[in-house]
């Protein structure tokens, strides 16, 4: 094998390592819900190729209002699914859609787009 071959192999190994680190291990954006005057905690989530923030922290037992703002027409993000809360909602493009729920149990609850390609996590804390 030539020098170039070795370089290509080394480059490939590095590229694979980077791809896996980037998509699986790198830190994702996170945000916390804030309690509004009406006793409901609220958080805005922008959808454009993914959820921003992708990790949402909320308090247990306080009604939670998730305001999804879908800033794209990609069919991947036309629905949001919060499986643990039995919620699936159609999200019109370039509109805000409110999903309300009461996080009764603490824990980590994944949510995703309708096809399961975009992911986010709702972290319910005591």
């Amino acid at each position: 094998m030539s020098m170039i071959d070795w370089l290509v192999i080394a480059g490939a190994v590095a590229a694979i390592a980077w791809v896996n680190w980037y998509f699986f291990a790198a830190e994702r954006s996170s945000g916390s819900a804030t309690v509004t005057g009406s006793g409901v905690q609220e958080v805005g989530i922008t959808i454009k190729g993914g959820f921003t923030p992708a990790v949402i922290r909320a308090k247990q037992g306080v009604p939670l209002r998730l305001v999804f703002d879908r800033q794209e027409t990609s069919s991947c993000s036309e629905e949001v699914v919060l499986g643990d809360f039995g919620v699936r909602r159609f999200l019109p493009a370039f509109e805000k859609t409110v999903v309300e729920l009461i996080p009764r149990e603490p824990g980590r609850f994944d949510f995703s787009c309708g096809m399961g390609m975009l992911h986010g996590t709702l972290v319910v804390e005591r």
Partner: peptide, 19 residues
């Protein structure tokens, strides 16, 4: 166009899809 813009948007969110 949408394949590239969506792929880029996903990439920025550390996610990847068909695009």
């Amino acid at each position: 166009r949408h394949f590239y813009t969506r792929a880029w948007a996903s990439f920025r969110h550390h996610s990847a899809d068909m695009n």
